Lab assay of single mutants.
Amino acid sequence: DIEITTNGEEDAKRVIKELQKRNLEYHIEVHGNQWVIKVR
């Protein structure tokens, strides 16, 4: 598993777009303004 910590929603959406392009499965956890994306 890979864990990507982003700085808020805009940053997270940019990362998610890339993950979707590669058809990767991911899970999002929001901790305040930090979005942690866990990639399987």
Rank of each mutant, 00 (worst) to 15 (best):
K21V: 07
E10T: 07
N33S: 10
I37T: 00
R22V: 04
V39R: 01
T5V: 15
H31Y: 10
R22C: 13
Q34Y: 12
E29Q: 08
N23R: 12
V15L: 10
A12D: 00
V30Q: 09
K13E: 08
L19M: 04
D11T: 08
R22I: 05
V39Q: 01
Q34E: 07
W35A: 02
N7P: 04
E10H: 08
K17E: 12
I28P: 00
I2K: 05
A12Q: 02
R40E: 06
G32M: 04
Q34H: 11
L24D: 02
R22L: 15
V30S: 04
N23Q: 09
T5R: 15
D1T: 13
A12R: 03
N33Q: 09
I28K: 01
I37C: 04
H27Q: 12
Q20V: 12
R22A: 10
W35S: 02
N33M: 08
Q34P: 01
H27T: 15
Y26H: 02
E29L: 07
E3H: 11
V39H: 02
K17S: 11
E18R: 08
T5A: 06
I4E: 01
D11N: 10
R14W: 14
E9K: 08
E29S: 09
V30W: 06
R22D: 04
H27F: 13
D11L: 09
N7D: 11
V15P: 01
V39E: 00
K17F: 12
V15G: 01
I4R: 02
W35M: 04
H27R: 13
Q34R: 13
Q20Y: 05
D1R: 10
G8H: 09
I4W: 08
Y26A: 03
T5C: 14
E3K: 09
G8Q: 07
I16A: 05
I2Q: 06
V30E: 03
D1S: 11
E29H: 06
I28L: 08
I4S: 01
R14C: 13
R22E: 04
R40I: 14
E9H: 07
G32R: 03
V15D: 00
V15F: 08
E10V: 08
Y26N: 00
E18V: 11
G8T: 15
I2T: 07
T6W: 03
L24R: 05
E25I: 14
V39Y: 09
I37P: 01
E10D: 10
K38T: 14
D11K: 06
Q34N: 10
H31L: 10
Q20H: 07
V30G: 02
H27D: 12
K13I: 12
E25S: 14
H31D: 06
N23E: 05
H27C: 13
L19W: 02
K38G: 01
E3L: 14
K13T: 08
H31C: 11
V30I: 14
W35P: 00
D11A: 14
A12G: 04
V39C: 05
I37S: 00
T6I: 15
N33G: 11
K17T: 09
H31F: 11
K17L: 14
E3A: 09
I4D: 01
V39S: 02
D11F: 10
D11V: 07
V15N: 01
R14P: 03
Y26I: 05
D11I: 08
L24T: 03
E18K: 06
N33D: 12
E3N: 07
I37M: 02
R14S: 06
